[in-house]
């Protein structure tokens, strides 16, 4: 049996990727199961999904804690969490990034495959949905399933839901990724400090759980404490405001879902710590002073 863990963000299709991979393995005569793990996450929040493949019936139903392969659909995730956690000794990590495997820094050096799945998805699908492209990279890096099976699984899974044409496009994205995947070894040595949690004992717990604003070891909690939750790494596209063109109308300031645009000396300014890159500001700007471009992540 081998196990795969997918790390993605809600809406990127990690769950569909896990399912489509299971179907590809099944088409080759294996037993396969897949399931997602999520709580109340919105689109953009980190989520996980799992696939297990075996040549006999699979009885184990738990999450995957010691994967053979780890798939990362969004490279910003490798900055904030140790995606290698529990990875088996000879395991492989497959990452959606524009970087080469040797340029990726993780907690330890491991076999690493990289592909610009976002670039491929934008080119083939016109949308930054990377779940099908990454499957091509997974097939290439592991050699566990044939790319033809992956294509067939995508056609069946996505074709049934989104129509034949869309199924074919997604299969093409997987094939392109298969051909462009680079396999090598990552750098190691990156340290991760787990985010401390606020865990009060029974005496510290306020009555009814009601809290005002409180400074704790886990940071700010209570009223207004979400300001410490930086959502900027959710985005794929980034707005740039042309100060010359900005007429100070405040439309973007009014409409921004994050409330992360402020007016400085009569001109709009974005706080990128929070901007999720939705593009409403650019679409609503009457002066066409805002441009959205794909963000190049360092």
């Amino acid at each position: 049996m081998y196990e795969i863990r997918f790390h993605g963000r809600g809406g990127q299709g990690g769950k569909m990727a896990a399912e489509a991979y299971a179907l590809a393995a099944f088409l080759e005569g294996n037993y396969a199961v897949s399931f997602p793990f999520f709580g109340a996450e919105r689109r953009g929040a980190p989520v996980k999904a799992f696939t297990r493949v075996d040549d006999k019936k699979i009885r184990i139903k738990t999450q995957v804690y010691e994967p053979d392969y780890v798939v990362v659909l969004d490279e910003t995730l490798i900055e904030t969490q140790d995606v290698l956690e529990g990875l088996k000794k000879d395991g492989t990590v497959i990452i959606n990034t524009q970087r080469k495997p040797e340029e990726v820094r993780l907690s330890k050096p491991v076999k690493c495959a990289t592909v610009d799945a976002t670039g491929i998805a934008l080119e083939v699908l016109g949308r930054p949905i990377t779940n099908t492209a990454i499957l091509g990279a997974l097939a290439r890096a592991t050699g566990r399933v044939k790319i033809e099976s992956v294509e067939q699984a995508i056609m069946e899974k996505f074709g049934a839901r989104l129509g034949r044409e869309s199924g074919e496009k997604n299969a093409r994205a997987a094939r392109m990724a298969y051909e462009q995947t680079l396999v090598g070894t990552s750098q190691g040595g990156k340290e991760f400090v787990p985010r401390p949690q606020w865990l009060p004992d029974v005496h510290e717990m306020p009555i009814g759980g009601a809290i005002g604003t409180m400074k704790t070891e886990a940071g700010l909690i209570g009223i207004g404490s979400f300001v410490e939750n930086k959502t900027g790494d959710w985005r794929t596209f980034i707005p740039a405001i042309d100060k010359e063109k900005c007429i100070g109308c405040r439309f973007c300031w009014f409409y921004c879902p994050e409330g992360c645009i402020s007016m400085v000396e009569g001109k709009a300014e974005v706080n990128y710590d929070y901007c999720k890159g939705c593009g409403i500001c650019a679409h609503e700007c009457p002066a066409k002073a805002i441009e959205m471009t794909r963000e190049v992540k360092a």
């Binding site: 979400f226 959502t231 405040r250 409330g259």
Partner: peptide, 27 residues
């Protein structure tokens, strides 16, 4: 909208989907 204050009583850092219609309404 120019008469609105800059004070924010519904802060950034919330976890709505990108492009959600609700946060600008409540803010």
């Amino acid at each position: 909208i120019k008469d609105l204050s800059d004070e924010i009583l519904f802060t950034p850092g919330h976890t709505a989907c990108a492009g959600c219609g609700a946060p600008p309404i409540v803010r």
